[in-house]
Nucleic acid binder design. Sequence first.
RNA 1: GGAGGGUUGCCCGAGCGGUCAAAGGGAGCAGACUGUAAAUCUGCCGGCUUAUGCCUACGGUGGUUCGAACCCACCACCCUCCA
Length: 407
Amino acid sequence: MKPEAQLAELKRGVVDLHVEADLLERLNEGRPLKIKAGFDPTRPDLHLGHTVLLNKMRQFQDLGHDVVFIVGDFTAQIGDPSGRSSTRQVPTREEIEEGARTYAEQAFKILDKERTQIVYNGEWLGKLAFDDVIRLAGKYTLARMMERDDFKRRWAEHVSISLHELLYPLAQAYDSVVLECDVELGGTDQLFNLLVGREIMREMGQRPQIVITTPILEGINARVENGKIVGAKMSKSLDNYVAIDEAPKEQLGKLMSLSDDLMWRYYELLSTEPEAEVQRRKRACAAGDLNPRDVKMMLAKEIVARYHGAREADGAEASWLAQFSQRQVPDDMPEREVVLENEEVWIPKLLSDLGLVKSSSEGRRRIQQGGVEIDGNRISDPQAKLPKGGPYIIKAGKRAWAAVTLK
RNA sequence: GGAGGGUUGCCCGAGCGGUCAAAGGGAGCAGACUGUAAAUCUGCCGGCUUAUGCCUACGGUGGUUCGAACCCACCACCCUCCA
């Protein structure tokens, strides 16, 4: 593909591109560019938020360029301060290794293995001596470091900043120097770190890398207020994520729980549908010609199909429609057997033992709120008991089901 | 080295001797409604089988008091200002 055409393709969906002319110049050199992206291996589960960046990496690969996938085993010990309001906990060596392994495994659902090189930055960062670090630190100033948004904010809000956190951007920049990469990719929250890489490379007498950032996807519980998206970014620790190796039905269900407004953000960042088609759907929804639920289903199925295949996506849709639209009994409910000490069991206790609720108090509440059904009959008495027998089809809320035999 | 401020439930945050299982918001959950696990509305939201009851909880340990998240002492951690 011609450099100009590549550039147009690569610019799609990115937030920052420093510097465009420089990128075009390198594309004109006609060689495969070296694309760098680093991952902090402390969170093994890749989710849709990560895929925004991975998709961009894949795009480079499809255009004939090479990706260097850096596992930040060394930098993970520092903990990237990006977007953090406080200092990170340092993960153990085992956590890092386990994380790195599962990370790479999942990343190859998106990346082209043939064009990906995996490296660990501990290989070179671990060998630096203290005087090397001092020399590196000498190439940047505190004032410039404090320009960084999250440092500035934490400083202003009197939240502690440990000195080692200041070294993080330098360590990441040093990775670029060692690899002599052409382009570094990251989320918008990485912009500062990436730009430090440019500076340090220049200081070290190299051509500064081109910096590209991709948007950060908000979590599934984000809301839209006055046209603005309100809510934290997708993350495992906030439990507002859709993991790429999650079961098809879970993925579909989570995506169907997006608010109608937020759905368009997901379309923008995750769908591969042509822009014109997305706009058509948006207009049709606004005009009332299309039901937003159906448009959301198209998106959900597109994503499920990407990781599990079209057949799984169809299956997930069918059981979702049955369970939530038609309120039927789910087809894959867990079958359980419980051995009783007596002839009957207090229902809240049973729900708790089955793990359908957290405690029997919670079970009692859920009965009082009318959320518990056994064999299709709503239980209203929180004192109710259930005799031996079954299997009973127990429903304890929208998504908590079990087929239980009492012995 | 000195002076001062802070540490509250999943998160943020109010409370500053009894009426505190602790305001308010967020997240979460249930029901109604629906087009869905959207939106909206209502309710719930530490635990204990039945409770104007008990237990656990407001950084930790002791203490004062009939009674402490609230007062005192010490300890730990965080922040600010001065040097």
